[in-house]
């Protein structure tokens, strides 16, 4: 098994030796990851491993400072762009905790966001009526009640409704690279199925998805092409979907030993999953 899954497909996202910090605290310490069109990658790891930071740095959260390395998005330097520009050219971040914005109608928010993306692609912007037709059709992707369009953005939505609203945004924005940060957290099994079904429907040979997750259960519903284990701000191991199953069985204890070994200290060999060859 090789981490290059579709060697002939164009590279959409290339992360090279990425270092980033928040409030002068280094969090990412040399992340390398290449994602090609048509691929679904999963990044797993414990709390504090840096996986959520990776998603925020990629989306351009201003609280994070990139201190080294590079990120190329379809060959362009992504890190030079504002968050809004990244969204317009096709990068999407599905939030772990979608923000409630009382007083801003969900429909209007979705329309403004969709039009920002359409404008960038040279498509005609949609007026309120034309947009309603588009959004009602897309609601089916996440089986969402149209009543949610008339409410304020995420206000009073349950955890599951918020995550469905995230996937609805993904369906409308048609991203090239979608990063879903803990989209499975706080979902019951039915909501998880709906959300995962939405992601699967939106996957195509032309786009790619990066799933940030804690648990294997999401990967039962969305089959990843590659799984990466993050720890202490870098990707410690990469492999196929079997790696997620291994993690489910053996937990993350081996990670500490692996980290210690990498730091050059003597440590007993962990009961780790078999190393997988990484190209």
């Amino acid at each position: 098994m090789s981490a290059v899954i579709r060697p002939d497909a164009p590279v959409l996202l290339e992360i090279r030796d990425l270092h980033a910090s928040v409030e002068n605290q280094p969090i990412l310490k040399g992340v390398n990851l290449t994602i090609r069109a048509g691929e679904i990658h999963a990044v797993m790891g414990r709390n504090g491993s840096g996986k959520s930071t990776l998603s925020k740095v990629l989306a351009g959260h201003p609280a994070y400072t990139v201190t080294g390395g590079s990120v190329l998005y379809r060959g362009e330097n992504l890190l030079d762009l504002d968050p809004e520009q990244r969204s317009r050219i096709g990068l999407f971040l599905g939030f772990q905790y979608p923000v409630e914005i009382p007083g801003v109608s969900n429909l209007e928010f979705l329309r403004v966001a969709t039009n920002a993306r359409r404008k960038e692609r040279g498509d005609e912007e949609l007026d309120t009526f034309a947009f309603e037709d588009v959004v009602r059709e897309r609601l089916s992707v996440v089986q969402m009640d149209p009543a949610f369009l008339d409410r304020s953005v995420n206000e009073g939505f349950s955890g599951g409704e918020k995550k469905r609203n995230e996937i609805l945004q993904m369906a409308l924005l048609e991203p090239v690279v979608a990063i879903l940060d803990e989209t499975d957290s706080g979902l019951d099994i039915d909501a998880l199925r709906i959300v995962a079904g939405g992601v699967n429907q939106l996957s195509s040979p032309d786009n790619s998805t990066l799933l940030i997750t804690h648990y294997q259960r999401l990967l039962d519903l969305i089959t990843p092409d590659a799984v990466h284990v993050m720890a202490a701000g870098r990707i410690l191991r990469s492999g196929g979907k079997d790696l997620a199953l291994e993690l489910e069985r053996s937990g993350y204890e081996w990670v500490d030993a692996e980290l210690a070994r990498l730091d050059g200290e003597a440590a007993p060999q962990p009961a780790a999953p078999q190393p997988l060859e990484v190209a």
Binding site: R88, F95, V99, I101, V104, A113, L173
Partner: peptide, 19 residues
């Protein structure tokens, strides 16, 4: 959150004031 949906910073600030 708003900027990550393609909404520029000034418009986003306006939306939040409206809210």
């Amino acid at each position: 959150y708003l900027r990550s949906r393609g909404i520029d910073a000034a418009t986003a600030a306006g939306l939040l004031q409206r809210a």
